[in-house]
Design a protein around this nucleic acid. Structure first.
Lengths: 335, 335
DNA sequence: CTGAAAGCGCTTACAG
DNA sequence: CTGAAAGCGCTTACAG
């Protein structure tokens, strides 16, 4: 079933049917209704390829996510982000094309994303400091949005959670509770979120006029095992509190503390980041920083569609606030 | 940059460039090389919309996943399934269009998936017994594959994990260890996997000539809280073992047992299903049934592409084996 | 092995 | 407000 046939059935031209389909105001009410009736009756849907070819717009958005990140399994971040993106696209009548970036197909994927005309714009959730896709997008002219700010590319548009502010608030909370030796287990420092959460930790110390002690900083890798190992390292420095840059690392840290015979939060207070579902049920329940992952997705879609419509408007840098969720692991109840 | 320009630059016709691009054998080696050189040099990629329109194939596969399932966050099943699908598509030079099915947009999504010509075929990971998309696909003629078998639609092609066999093996294991009162916490019975895992439980009892006691069956909902509540119900019946239809429910069950002062596995042995990352670190580490989620994804893609190429070949019903992973929670070590 | 030409199903100035 | 026509960038018989 195509335009031609709808036209015949409604007794008008193809042009007119097209206008009706596309909500062009230049159609009489009578004609519009006549056509719409036929469209409904035969359950007509315009061919996407023909439409894309003729109009130069596909009404499809690309979403690129790094493959092989361990967090893809263990962490609901990506699933929820995808939900936000998908839901916002649904609401705006867009479809989403998903690319899980695999290094071995990188060149082909970049070509496809940028030059095949499959999508009107693309959302990249890269997290890595240097990413050849982001590089290519910066040099090209396909509208794109980053989820997570970019450290070097200054004219890239992005939506990000306030990782610095969230970490800062978490550490400040520990300091206010009277903890004096607050350590941190960081994420990988080649990930922007990892670097930002460390920056927030340092900012909180600075706020109170404290020096940050390199011995109290251990690098993790956003895994449970990494948090466990980092905590073991830190043990010798006798911290009385730890800010872990992710909940999963916080859980690893708690395991290490328990094995060392230390109590949480009495001996060592813990704050994580992410608010995983399991963090509520942890022993003790984890104090953590919640980020608005779903809204990250919807906001990015809205911004991208806006960018597609008004390409030369001002740069979009949106930072969404995080929220400190206080539970037992930080020892708030004790003070 | 389009075909026309490549043709001009290589001194051949559009037809010939098209043949080169599509690996048509009817091109002389010399011509092919000449054209390929230009293609590489200018980094040409054919326009997907034009291609789709002319050829009637888009080289895009659709993937439909139910939105709003709680498991979408807590369980790595979907992320890993998506990875498998995406990876297989990459390998075959297909792209994937992702639809998270939202009830409120259902009709539009179905129309789009089926009649817009966006995709050459579609993979549906429905899990629900009655699904209007599956219904529509059965009535239509877009090639499709189900992940998870369909109970009623007998001519639907699917790839599934052996839920019945896996559950049966788990329960048989408990019985062999000498457990006499083996209870089960089921998944929702309107989900196929939920129903199948219960069927496997019952089959294992039958294998040994045992009657299944309705009092030893409690329905959960694939959440931790559901497992916890179901276990509390079961407590009164004094089971000495529990097969939980998912790990997350098994973890909830363990929590309930602990609160009741019972030891796992000494008093009550537990086996789960899924092999979540956290199950290794559970206390005690969880015996569970592992399903080949990633391979479910790749296998489905391969079957679908095969189905697209040979539409009238025999029905495809593929069941992939599961694997019992024995850890401490079933008490194997005790016997 | 190669090219000229029709056609895929739309959109969009243009003319009226 | 409506229609005839060109054109989007490919593929694919068809002819040679």
């Amino acid at each position: 079933m195509n335009l031609e046939q709808i036209a015949k059935l409604s007794g008008v031209s193809r042009s007119t049917v097209s206008r009706v389909i596309n909500n062009d105001p230049n159609v009489s009410v009578a004609t519009r209704e006549k056509v719409m009736q036929v469209v409904k009756r035969v359950n007509y849907t315009p061919n996407a390829a023909a439409r894309g070819l003729a109009a130069g717009r596909t009404h499809v958005l690309g979403l690129v996510i790094p493959m092989g990140v361990a967090a893809l399994f263990t962490d609901p971040y990506f699933p929820i982000l995808i939900q936000g993106v998908s839901s916002a696209c649904n609401a705006r009548e867009y479809s989403v094309m998903l690319w899980l970036a695999e290094p071995e197909y990188e060149r082909r994927q970049i070509r496809q994303i940028m030059y095949s005309g499959l999508v009107d714009g693309v959302i990249v959730s890269s997290m890595l400091m240097n990413d050849s896709l982001v590089q290519a997008l910066s040099d090209g002219d396909l509208p794109f949005m980053l989820v997570g700010r970019h450290p070097t590319d200054t004219h890239a548009n992005y939506v990000d959670a306030d990782n610095i502010g969230g970490a800062r608030e978490a550490v400040t909370h520990l300091l206010r509770l009277g903890r004096a030796r607050v350590a941190t287990i960081t994420g990988p420092q080649n990930m922007i979120a990892g670097a930002d959460r460390l920056a927030g930790y340092q900012a909180a110390l600075r706020d109170r006029g404290l020096l940050s002690d390199p011995g109290l900083i251990a690098e993790g890798d956003f895994t449970e095992a990494g948090g466990y190992r980092a905590m073991q390292q830190l043990l010798a420095r006798r911290p009385d509190a730890v800010f872990a840059a992710s909940d999963i690392m916080a859980l690893g840290a708690i395991r290490a503390l328990r094995e060392a015979g230390l109590r949480v939060p009495e001996d060592v207070a813990i704050v994580g980041f992410d608010d995983l579902p399991q963090s509520t049920r942890a022993e003790p329940p984890l104090t953590t920083v919640r980020q608005p992952t779903y809204r990250l997705g919807t906001t990015t879609v809205d911004s991208l569609l806006d960018l597609i419509e008004y390409p030369d408007s001002s740069p979009r840098r949106i930072v969404l606030p995080t929220e400190l969720v206080v539970r037992a692991s930080c020892g708030s109840a004790l003070k």
